[in-house]
Design a binder for these strands. Structure first.
Lengths: 187, 187
DNA sequence: GACTAAACAGACAGGTCTGTATAGAAACTC
DNA sequence: GAGTTTCTATACAGACCTGTCTGTTTAGTC
């Protein structure tokens, strides 16, 4: 399979980027940890930035797939699922390898909005927002857009508080706050 | 004045760190933009990390001073001031030089919680939280701790949505959501 | 077994990084 | 005005960075 090396590179790069950041992770470290030769990397990716984009793409897919799967397992009704989001966040925060949100971190290192890396983070954000909006509509909220945007603020806020301030219980606080918003939305 | 060069270095470094990130900003660029000699920098700061810590310290002081000043000018009662926080955020987001939260960005680049740079970001977070809690108590909230933590989630969430997703109106959405929380807190 | 394509190993170029060393200029003090 | 401190300018060391290049080895196919 021609793409097995590629996949392995993306996996390794994602691990190192998450743990140490993008600028702080050199190509050589990714090669050493993956055991892949340099020329193989540059055959699959034109540059380090392209490798970063590929890792962000994989991270986005895995993150949203895992989120939807866990949310739909933990909650049966749309209302339960909106609240289950914060339980999933709690599991994520208390997991061993929690290093914050890869996309927030990527935006921090590539601040220009027109940078493709920053744009990829914005797109991920948009897709998560769309999922929450979908649930809010299914739950029959009075103003689904307002509810979804409010919940998204709580999600992002909880991630920041858990990562920057080390406040791992931010997800529980966010869940309690979300219940207030759900009540206000009539569900 | 022995500290004028030092102050100038911190100002310049803060500007460059905010615009381009910490790893991406080399000592030489700070020297070129400030017009200060390298040995002068290393006389005032033992290392680049110490310079970073000094810039974060200044940023924290300026940020919270400006926040409190603007909030207390825009709102007269504690309740008004809690809501005014989000108006101040809106001004910040739409300002020309908005590059997200320096402390979230610093945490992203220095992920280890025991790293002094990450710790400085956590401390800033704690101090902002304390200010909001103070206002929540003065406003006579039913459960000031819960209200303050909920508002803090909205603040951090709004910053992320404004910076990562470019959603500059996140502050308005956060304000509308905050009003729901205030009502729930009985104020 | 011969041919082909992929991956490996490692040197290399050219640039950047942090931090140090040295020598001269400017400013301040007595 | 002499002496001291402060700053500048610049070179330097040693490490790291990305990306290229050259061979060699492995693996798969006919």
């Amino acid at each position: 399979m021609t793409s097995s090396k590629r996949d392995h590179l993306v996996d390794t790069a994602l691990d190192l980027f998450c743990r140490h950041g993008f600028h702080a992770t050199g190509i050589d470290k990714i090669l050493a940890q993956s055991g892949v030769a340099k020329m193989t990397l540059y055959k699959h990716f034109k540059s380090k930035d392209e490798l970063i984009l590929a890792t962000l793409h994989r991270r986005d897919e895995k993150f949203r797939n895992d989120l939807m799967r866990d949310v739909e397992r933990k909650g049966k009704t749309p209302r339960e699922r909106l609240l289950a989001i914060f339980d999933v966040l709690g599991d994520w925060f208390s997991g061993r390898g929690f290093t914050g949100c890869t996309f927030i971190n990527a935006s921090a290192e590539y601040s220009a909005p027109e940078n493709p890396i920053h744009a990829a983070a914005a797109e991920h954000n948009r897709l998560v927002s769309a999922y929450i909006l979908e649930l809010a509509k299914a739950a029959g909220a009075k103003d689904p857009n307002a509810l979804a945007q409010g919940l998204m603020l709580l999600v992002e806020g909880a991630i920041v508080m858990a990562y920057v301030a080390g406040q791992k219980d931010a997800s529980e606080q966010a869940k309690r706050t979300a219940e207030i918003l759900l009540a206000d939305a009539g569900i």
